[in-house]
């Protein structure tokens, strides 16, 4: 079995885990957005509440969400491990560096961007996921079925300009992280091909702009609505 433990310690396998967990998080982000988009429907949260209620009672979704947590933890732990190794690999820094001439800024700052995302995740999970688990949420009944009115919690949060602003700014961090991360994960997996790599890069850039932008639009719209 030593081949397995040795493998897990090798730099390439560590990177592989970063890439696989990162790609899963990208997939999760997409599904998450598809759900969240219902927050801006003009139905006082009915669609979103029903959706959230269904998800909370679907055993498959609950299993996936456990995996999602595990993958975030793996992604973060391995990023700390890798970043430390990468730092010690150059104990004396250059006196003069022109790194911007040979590599994109995002690719050199994945750790910082990731840390900022992590800070956001803590705020995010504390504000919503944790609140939803509590019983303090008002209930609402649609067609005879009673469920927590989670929309109300979201609406209250986003009506606070600071809270909404944290969300919007954080989406920039996600966008920058993915503008390098998306295509980088494929390179790590060994998927570099003249036919597909240009497409992967283009899709990655598009994803890194569109998905965070739509995510950011939700608090903006809810905040604007709360004014009027």
């Amino acid at each position: 079995m030593s081949w397995l433990t040795d493998s897990l310690k090798s730099s390439i396998f560590r990177k592989l885990l970063m890439a696989l967990t990162g790609l899963f998080l990208i997939l999760f982000l997409t599904v998450h957005l598809a759900g969240n988009i219902q927050l801006i429907f003009n139905d006082e949260g009915q669609a979103f509440n029903i959706y959230a209620h269904t998800m909370a009672h679907n055993p498959f979704i609950q299993l996936v969400s456990k995996f999602n947590f595990a993958f975030i933890v793996i992604h973060v732990i391995y990023s700390i491990w890798l970043s430390r190794i990468n730092k010690t690999a150059r104990p004396v820094k250059y006196g003069y560096s022109a790194a911007s001439t040979n590599s994109p800024w995002t690719s050199r700052n994945m750790g910082i961007l990731g840390t900022l995302i992590l800070v956001f995740l803590v705020i995010h999970l504390k504000g919503f996921w944790w609140e939803f688990k509590n019983d303090s949420i008002p209930m609402i009944t649609y067609d005879g079925e009673t469920m927590p009115n989670v929309f109300l919690v979201v609406k209250a949060a986003y009506s606070n300009i600071w809270y909404a602003a944290v969300y919007v700014v954080s989406m920039f961090f996600v966008g920058f992280h993915l503008s390098h991360g998306f295509a980088s994960a494929f390179q790590t997996l060994g998927l570099n091909h003249v036919k597909y790599t240009p497409a992967i890069k283009a899709i990655g850039k598009g994803y890194a702009i569109i998905v965070p932008a739509v995510f950011a639009l939700i608090p903006i719209l809810i905040y604007i609505k709360s004014l009027g």
């Binding site: 040795d6 310690k9 090798s10 730099s11 390439i12 990177k15 990468n86 690999a89 690719s107 050199r108």
Partner: peptide, 17 residues
């Protein structure tokens, strides 16, 4: 790759530098 890791080189972040 094992020797590369043992020598203390860092891991790749695909910066392309």
């Amino acid at each position: 790759v094992a020797q590369m890791d043992a020598e203390g080189f860092g891991a790749c972040t695909n910066t392309g530098a």
